[in-house]
Computed example of a mutant assay.
Amino acid sequence: MSQQQISLPAKLINGGIAGIVGVTCVFPIDLAKTRLQNQRPGQQVYKSMMDCLVKTVRSEGYFGMYRGAAVNLTLVTPEKAIKLAANDLLRHHLSKDGKGLTVFKEMLAGCGAGMCQVVVTTPMEMLKIQLQDAGRLAAQQQKPVMMSSAKLVATNTVPSRSFNSGAVVSAPRAVSATQIAKELLLTQGIQGLYKGLGATLMRDVPFSIVYFPLFANLNHLGKPSPEESSPFYWAFLSGCVAGSTAAVVVNPCDVVKTRLQSLNKGASEETYNGVVDCVSKILRKEGPSAFLKGAGCRALVIAPLFGIAQVMYFVGVGEYILDNSPLNFLAA
């Protein structure tokens, strides 16, 4: 099936379903990535991804690995839908001259897609990180973390007007993403949810610039002929390879974003005044290798996410849903 023939509503459905399925499968690895990236030298709670997951299950239970998943599952549909649909629309617009897309135009389309998605990505990541990192802070303070299997909540403090001031969390209590969002809106306004926007742009725009052209060219190599689509397995592998490659390339930006968006700090953990200050302090105190923290985890998270997304396009899940529902007129 040619992707040029897929309608916009179908693209949105495919992207949304792919995001939900992918997040459900790989969220524990994403949690490990966040906790590993936030660790400072001399304060390591976790030695590796597997060590993090094992300790999380032991101290917080199985559902502890899914802290913050509710936020992701709620917002990943619009995020992935915006990213994939924006890229496809921009590629279509840039190829109207009939000459096809050059690599530069493919990168330009990816850049536009990355800039569009941060509208949803930034607040989603902001809330998710608070919930994911709560277990690390609790373990660092050697205090028990309470987790309900019915609710994905975190043992954390609600950020106050003095958040990010360097004060150590001393009286953790269970809060939800909704409570954190309300407190941020009350104390800082909408900009509170968009803390780290610059770092998110630094991560997502280059990611899309690398991913979309790389996927398109890898996928093209698997086509039996110019008129036919690449096989099912080739589309999946192309998505995985392109996704993991782009994830590793932008991992330094992801580390900076994670540090900036973490509102609560552990003992002796520094605060940062923007991207430049964050990069400078990490380089000075932790060295260049700190920017690769969680790179393996991030590659393992992103690869299946985008592999699954391409499979959804290949199978045509969105088209099937539209063709068999009262909303099929939208596909016209």
Rank of each mutant, 00 (worst) to 15 (best):
G274E: 09
T56W: 00
T157V: 15
T258V: 04
V103K: 10
C111W: 11
A181V: 10
G318L: 01
N38K: 09
F232P: 00
T56Q: 07
Q37C: 11
C297H: 07
T157S: 13
E270M: 15
I82D: 02
G15K: 00
P159E: 04
L94M: 13
F63I: 07
Q130R: 06
A70H: 12
A154Q: 07
G296R: 04
L94R: 05
K223C: 08
A138S: 15
A138Y: 00
C297I: 04
G198D: 03
D277W: 03
C25D: 05
E79C: 14
S160Q: 10
S238L: 09
M312F: 09
I180F: 05
A332N: 15
S268C: 15
Q117L: 10
F236E: 01
R40H: 14
Q132A: 12
G135L: 09
A299D: 08
G189W: 00
L186I: 13
F215A: 07
M107I: 13
G243N: 06
L330F: 09
S170T: 14
L327H: 11
V279D: 03
G274D: 00
L36T: 02
L305W: 03
A171E: 15
V57Y: 12
H220Y: 09
Y313A: 09
D88H: 13
R58V: 04
A309Q: 02
Y313D: 13
A70L: 12
N273W: 11
K223T: 05
K257V: 08
L89W: 08
L152C: 06
R91Y: 08
D88I: 02
G100Y: 02
H92Y: 14
V103S: 11
Q39C: 03
N164G: 15
Q39W: 05
V311K: 01
G243E: 03
A10K: 00
L53Y: 06
I209V: 15
C52L: 02
T122N: 06
K257Y: 11
Q140H: 13
L73E: 05
K96N: 03
G307P: 00
V45Y: 04
A290D: 03
S208N: 08
K83D: 11
K281F: 02
D30Y: 14
K105I: 09
A332W: 15
P326Y: 09
T271F: 01
K11Y: 14
Q140W: 01
A86E: 06
L75T: 05
P172A: 10
G19H: 01
A181R: 08
R35N: 15
G68N: 03
N87I: 01
K265Q: 14
R161S: 15
K105W: 11
T122L: 09
A303V: 05
L31F: 08
V279P: 00
P252T: 05
F104W: 11
I82R: 05
M124A: 12
